[in-house]
Nucleic acid binder design. Structure first.
Length: 660
RNA sequence: GCGCCUCUAGCUCAACGGCAGAGCAACGGACUCUUAAUCCGCAGGUUCUGGGUUCGAAUCCCAGGGGGCGCACCA
């Protein structure tokens, strides 16, 4: 029952600077993105408009940006005066559903594309028909003056607004195949010549910015370096070409004059997304941009598929999840969240290791699913002809290890629960479970509090986070309250496990809480808490003392009858951790299992089954033990400010792709 | 599983029931300090699919498919 927590969010973070966050590495970051403490300060962003993350951001906002940008564009008057050309399809008249493509027309022996039936000259069309602006005399351009000058008036404006709303990323309709194979790439590997097997990289983008940041414009360093990465932007200007190279740490500009760049024409033909290795001198351009002046280069891998729109990135969230390998390039958030997760895991391990906890691995295949109440996935071992379950929690195995004398153990365990998907639930997620002998649940409170604060201060630099627009201060000590107290506070009723069941049932029903026959007082109280109180908590807060009836693995409360020594941590309105003083008495554990088995027999698919071997282990003696489960996914969400669990799981569970 | 929303060029998006378009990408050309480079040009469509209404459907209706959100399930 522990560690149901899982979560999703999005951010960035690191203990210490993330790679590529040097003074110039920040350039590519966008100033309008949601501020979050985990993200690095904006100070280095010299020209932060550079690239847009394909993240959850309204298209309207990008339109705004576009307008702002081009209002000050030096050549705006040229752009504004330019009326986009109109496209005409070959069409003989009428309205063919299937327009002839040139190839088909030729194949059909036709005369090829028919001349346009009516080719309006700009300005030749009744200017009154265009309500947008005088500049555009046409009516049927669709109002698509582009994001640079979206008209903002009249009905057209209203429609545009409506359309904008429909474009919010969450509501966009994804397409299964976003980036089809290109018909032909520009730079192919030379026929018969395969890319090199290795490439000597001497600097990363971030290290270049660290080492050479702040040079005056026009500096030549006489330092030759080799960098490698993906071409993300390309600016060819006749006899001079620029490219933006991105590697795992950040971005650096490539400067390629025709004189001095081998195979200059091929360099200009590099596609966005091609991997290249480049050797050259570190310089700054006249504008002061740190660059590598190309003296040699090689294609390491040519991309055969188009990269996402360099400005919008991937707006289609489904594509981002399905094609994370593209998302990681196109979206800074995707990268930084992945890195943040990695750091959470590394820091957690280090923190636990320093405190004498031993990391272990326990089976994923369980003959008897246990340790939580959840519906498991089933599988089958052919040789043993044995039905097995993917674990829903590692708990019972970890406590076996405590019986075996491993006094402090933990596992960062992928667990699997056969449940629906949501922004907070993925069928497989990661849970930290740890067990400490000679400790009780108050010790676990100290552990979770210290660990989370440690992670927050290391990764975010503060305990004062903002999540989903609301402040969340993790500064210890976190408040503690019993479930009964919280119910009284939020539902306005004092409940008591010793009350008659009918009375508790009536209390629930009075508050619109659905109840089922057969529920005992403990289940009723828990249900009352979950439906009336939990959603109102923001936290962090320790919710203490759960009914024994719903906690089959926790030890009876030393003072309150009917309760167990168990707490959950609510942070940002979500359950983050679950812990208790472990039940050590084998006889009591057997009774609890049998109660669960009865529920199971009654049709409760999530109730626990009797695990005879676990009981046998307890019979050998489990010392007093405190146990804690903590949802890593939800913790990462919290620390990165992301609100969808799919954003913190690199490859979330998705319906299989259709087609292609 | 239920409800709501959505699907237009490779991408991001326009288009009162009346000629399906733009920007970016791609392709051809110009350009030696760009940085979402710019400029000129050329291409690019089974408007998710199938029915229906209509003189006429991307647009309205029905069904199916994909996707999103919410609920339910679920710690």
């Amino acid at each position: 029952m522990r560690g149901r927590a899982s979560g999703g969010g999005g951010g960035a973070g690191a203990d210490g600077p993330l790679p590529g966050r040097g003074p110039s590495g920040d350039r590519a970051r966008h100033p309008h993105r949601r501020p979050h403490p985990l993200r690095e300060p904006e100070g280095g962003g010299r020209r932060p408009h550079r690239q847009r993350r394909g993240r959850a951001r309204s298209v309207r906002a990008s339109h705004r940006r576009g307008r702002l940008r081009y209002r000050h564009h030096p050549r705006r008057h040229l752009r504004a005066g330019r009326v986009p050309g109109r496209r005409h399809r070959a069409r003989g008249g009428g309205r063919p559903r299937r327009p002839l493509r040139p190839s088909r027309a030729a194949a059909a022996g036709g005369a090829g594309r028919a001349p346009p039936r009516h080719r309006p000259q700009h300005g030749a069309v009744d200017p009154v028909r265009c309500a947008v602006r005088h500049r555009c005399p046409r009516r049927w351009h669709g109002g698509a003056h582009g994001r640079r000058a979206r008209p903002a008036h009249g009905g057209r404006h209203r429609r545009a607004e409506r359309a904008d709303r429909s474009l919010l990323p969450q509501r966009r309709a994804p397409r299964a195949v976003a980036h089809p194979v290109r018909a032909a790439s520009r730079v192919r590997e030379e026929p018969g010549v395969s890319p090199p097997y290795r490439y000597d990289v001497t600097r990363s983008a971030a290290s270049l910015h660290d080492e050479f940041g702040g040079l005056a414009p026009g500096t030549q360093t006489a330092t030759t370096v080799s960098v490698a990465g993906r071409v993300m932007l390309r600016r060819v200007q006749g006899k001079l070409a620029f490219a933006t190279l991105q590697d795992g740490t950040g971005r650096v500009q490539l400067f390629a004059p025709a004189a001095g760049t081998p195979r200059f024409d091929d360099f200009c033909d590099l596609s966005i997304g091609d991997w290249v290795g480049v050797t050259g001198e570190v310089i700054t351009t006249r504008r002061g941009e740190l660059s590598v002046k190309v003296t040699d280069w090689v294609v390491l891998a040519a991309t055969r598929r188009s990269f996402p729109d360099k400005w919008h990135g991937i707006a289609d969230v489904d594509t981002r999840y399905r094609q994370r390998y593209v998302d990681l390039w196109a979206s800074d958030d995707a990268r930084s969240t992945a890195l943040a997760r990695s750091r959470v895991l590394a820091l957690t391990r280090r923190w636990l290791d320093e405190r004498g906890f031993v990391e272990v691995e326990t089976p994923v295949f369980h003959p008897i699913p246990g340790g939580a109440t959840a519906r498991p996935f089933t599988t089958h071992h052919d040789a043993l002809d044995l039905d097995l379950y993917l674990r829903i929690a590692p708990e019972l195995y970890l406590k076996r290890l405590v019986v075996g004398g491993m006094e402090r153990v933990y596992e960062i365990a992928r667990v699997f629960r056969n449940e629906g998907l949501s922004t907070r639930h993925n069928p497989e997620f990661t849970m930290l479970e740890l067990y400490q002998a000679y400790a009780d649940y108050t010790d676990m409170m100290a552990v979770v509090e210290e660990l989370v604060v440690h992670l927050a201060t290391t990764l975010c630099g503060t305990t004062r986070l903002t999540y989903d627009g609301r402040p969340l201060d993790l500064e210890p000590p976190w408040p503690r309250a019993t479930m009964v107290e919280l119910i009284e506070q939020h539902a306005g009723v004092r409940v008591d496990l010793s009350s008659p069941v009918d009375e508790l049932r009536r209390i629930c029903e009075d508050r619109g809480v659905h109840v089922e026959a057969g529920w005992g007082p403990g289940k009723l109280v828990l249900e009352l808490y979950e439906k009336t109180t939990e959603a109102q908590l923001w936290g962090p807060v320790f919710v203490c003392d759960y009914p024994q009836e719903v906690s089959p693995l926790a030890r009876d409360h030393r003072e309150v009858p009917g309760m167990v020594e168990r707490f959950e941590v609510i942070a940002a309105g979500r359950e983050l951790a679950n812990a208790f003083s472990e039940l050590t008495d084998p006889d009591e554990q057997r009774r609890r299992f049998e109660d669960q088995a009865a529920l199971r027999g009654g049709g409760d698919e999530e109730a626990m089954a009797v695990d005879a071997d676990y009981l046998r282990a307890l019979e050998y003696g489990l010392p007093p033990t405190g146990g804690l489960g903590l949802g890593i996914d939800r913790l990462v969400m919290l620390l990165t400010g992301t609100t969808a669990i799919r954003d913190v799981i690199l490859f979330p569970t998705l319906r299989p792709e259709q087609g292609e």
